[in-house]
Design a binder for these strands. Structure first.
Length: 698
DNA sequence: CGATTCAGCGAT
DNA sequence: TCGCTGAATCGC
């Protein structure tokens, strides 16, 4: 070891991961001096340049003798956060895998999944937090545990293999719990959790959205009175997030509930992982390290030899294919609790409406009539339109001006409530012009419709009905969503209008009619996953109706469409996910798409399209050369602009890589990324680039 | 990433 | 000649 002469005689060298992106050239651990050996996984504070930052002690490389090199003067570790135990081997293994698989520096990933506040605390502050945590620990609520409902025969059958796996204490294949909305999946999660908790293990439950944590939290809290729970999601305050993370890490919290970032929670006694709504796209992180929390859950479960349950009414086709191949074990919950039927799906053919030039309504007369009928009967209806605002664009029919965003290749959306034009991509907002900015025509008109307009039309068409709207605009304020959902539950709303926000998980008891107003646009998306997503969205929306068994029989789901014969709608009409999945998988196999091929994207951004394209073309040449060199079957497609090519005056292009084998793609990426870093330096116009492994949309 | 350094042109 | 601004470079 080359130690500076003034070093203490027993000083030793420790490798430390710090937060530095891979293109910084500091992608591996840095070496520091410590007074004594520090256990791997310890959190430390280290100096780097003029800063002091949080670091994670890592497996050090063998010390190099470097006989002739000038003696490397290592800087000492500034502080050791030894009040908390080091991060465990399983957690570190998960991190190593994720960093390698998603092509990020381990330090960057580690620091991005640890609670942000850890970066700022001194050992003394951490000590204080721990004291507070220990105090809070004795005040776990201890109301009586809610009685467990009897399991149906189907539930018992589905649960048995999970319980067997928990008892056996070894790694079973992942379970894919395929259960309709309202079929009692949550009860199975509760039963499995009960067993794991009784075994003295920790349980991790992932949900796709923050909005869904409170209700699930309430369900678990009711059942497991006296069991310490912690939630982990990005809406927590920094202090809360650190407290909850610490509670999990110290083993105080036995039940951890959270969104995708919770997959990286430190859980020293993990015994079970549940991923609810496993098909949900929110499980894929969309910036920074683009990991899939669902896929990492499967990896982590295998690593730690614990069962993992993936639950969904419409599983991701990847998961479905795994189950068919026998790699996952499928558990079916085919019937709704209490014998409730799924709503009858009615496809309303918009072509049958008489064409009235100039007059457009999103609402067919038949639908309005159906809404009127529900209202008269005192039942609730839900209208689903996946587009917020009043109209997606303003238009001048004299000069053909459109409300284009000056900074993005997208239209500015007309919001009538506050008379603004807003770009949903870059966020710019301006007042609605009184006349056409291009030709002065005073008669500029909204084109198409969003939820605001739908709400307005419903109020006009259904006098006396109480119409409410739930979308990102009406729920901006904290607690607003909860208050609005409460109003629906209390029967203060007759017709609810909403974006996909309302289709997820909320248990509306009195809704007997769900209508999708204009879902067709998803059919023509260039994204190969669009049909899968649409099916799942509509199935989920359908699941909002008839959750009360007494009303289930007369519950309906309406789909207004110009393409009633489309396979997605036909499968939906039959409630036949299995047939739909099979058809989609057949198409995917023929087209060489996931799960039959593995994809990665290289995205690049810059002010100038040509510069970005030149970079990607040079990158393509590099990749092709590497593929040749490895003899790897990796196909690199030419760069193309993203569907929204320009956002906030930045041009965005991407390039697709496709390989029949995961390993081939991984090897190529590993060899390629360092070359790309060098390449970027030669291409000045490129602001940023990033690799997305297993992208959701291409 | 963020702190520091250095090149380049504009004002005094 | 001083001085501000943006690109390049380093950091164990």
């Amino acid at each position: 070891m080359n130690l500076p002469p003034q070093a203490a005689p027993n000083a030793c060298r420790v490798a430390v991961l710090v937060d530095a992106p891979q293109h910084s050239g500091l992608s591996t651990a840095l070496d520091y001096l410590a007074d004594q050996p520090l256990p791997v996984g310890s959190l430390v504070r280290v100096p780097l340049g003029a800063r002091e930052l949080l670091g994670l002690v890592w497996e050090g490389e063998a010390p190099l003798p470097e006989p002739d090199a000038p003696p490397l003067t290592l800087r000492p570790v500034s502080a050791v956060l030894d009040a908390i135990p080091p991060l465990g081997a399983a957690w570190r293994a998960l991190l190593v895998f994720a960093a390698g698989y998603y092509q990020r520096a381990a330090g960057e990933l580690a620091l991005s999944v640890l609670p942000p506040q850890l970066r700022e605390v001194s050992p003394a502050q951490l000590q204080a937090k721990l004291k507070k945590l220990h105090k809070a620990r004795v005040t776990v609520p201890t109301e009586a545990t809610a009685p467990r409902p009897e399991l149906t025969a189907a539930q018992q059958q589905a649960l048995a293999p999970v319980l067997a796996a928990l008892q056996a204490g070894q790694a079973p294949p992942p379970f894919l719990l395929w259960g309709l909305t309202g079929s009692g999946k949550t009860e199975l999660y509760l039963r499995a959790a009960e067993v794991a908790l009784a075994q003295g293990r920790q349980v991790l439950v992932l949900v796709p959205e923050i909005n869904l944590t409170p209700q699930l939290e309430a369900r678990f809290a009711q059942r497991f009175a006296g069991v310490a729970m912690a939630t982990l999601h990005s809406a927590l305050t920094p202090a809360q997030r650190l407290q909850h993370w610490l509670a999990a890490h110290l083993g105080h919290a036995r039940l951890v509930l959270g969104t995708r970032l919770a997959i990286f929670a430190s859980l020293p006694e993990l015994g079970l992982i549940v991923v609810d709504e496993e098909h949900d796209p929110s499980y894929k992180q969309q910036d920074g390290a683009r990991y899939s929390a669902r896929d990492l859950a499967v990896y982590r479960a295998r690593l730690e030899q614990v069962p993992v349950v993936l639950g969904s009414a419409t599983p991701a086709l990847e998961s479905w294919a795994h189950a068919q191949a026998g790699r996952y074990q499928r558990l079916d919950l085919a019937e709704r609790m209490g014998g409730g039927a799924l709503p009858q799906v009615r496809l309303f053919d918009m072509n049958r409406l008489p064409r009235q030039p100039g007059v457009t309504t999103a609402l067919s007369p038949a639908l309005v009539e159906a809404l009127r009928l529900r209202h008269a009967r005192g039942e609730q209806s839900l209208l689903f339109l996946n587009r917020r605002g009043y109209a997606p664009v303003l238009h001048c029919d004299q000069c053909n001006w459109k409300s284009d965003c000056p900074h993005c290749s997208a239209h500015q959306v007309f919001h009538k409530a506050d008379r603004t034009l807003r770009c949903h991509h870059c966020g710019v907002s301006q007042r609605v012009p009184r006349a056409c900015p291009s030709c002065g025509n005073a008669d500029i008109a909204p084109l198409g419709r969003g939820t605001e307009q739908l709400e307005e039309q419903l109020e006009a068409l259904l006098p006396g009905a109480r119409v409410a709207r739930i979308d990102a605009d009406t729920t901006r304020l904290k607690g607003a969503l909860h208050a609005q959902l409460h109003a629906v539950h209390e029967g203060e709303v007759d017709v609810l209008v909403g974006t996909q926000m309302v289709t997820k998980g909320h248990d509306f008891r009195r809704i007997t009619l769900v209508a999708a107003i204009n879902p067709d646009s998803a059919l023509f998306s260039s994204d190969f996953r669009a049909p899968e997503r649409l099916f799942s969205l509509l199935m989920q929306a359908a699941g909002r109706a008839g959750r009360d068994a007494a009303q289930a029989a007369r519950s309906e789901m309406w789909v207004q469409t110009w393409y009633p014969a489309h396979a997605v709608y036909q499968a939906l009409r039959q409630h036949d996910f299995a047939a739909f999945a099979q058809a989609q998988l057949t198409e995917r196999e023929a087209a060489g798409l996931p799960p039959y091929a593995h994809l990665a994207l290289l995205r690049a951004e810059g002010r100038d399209v040509a510069a970005v394209r030149a970079f990607l073309l040079a990158a393509q040449a590099q990749a092709d050369a590497l593929a040749q060199q490895f003899g790897a079957e990796v196909l690199v497609y030419p760069p193309v602009p993203l569907p929204v090519a320009r956002v906030a005056n930045v041009e965005r292009l991407q390039m697709l890589m496709e390989a029949p084998q995961r390993g081939a793609l991984q090897r190529l990426l590993r060899a390629w990324l360092p070359q790309l870093q060098a390449l970027k330096r030669q291409h000045r116009g490129v602001l940023r680039w990033a690799v997305d492994v297993d992208p959701l949309a291409i």
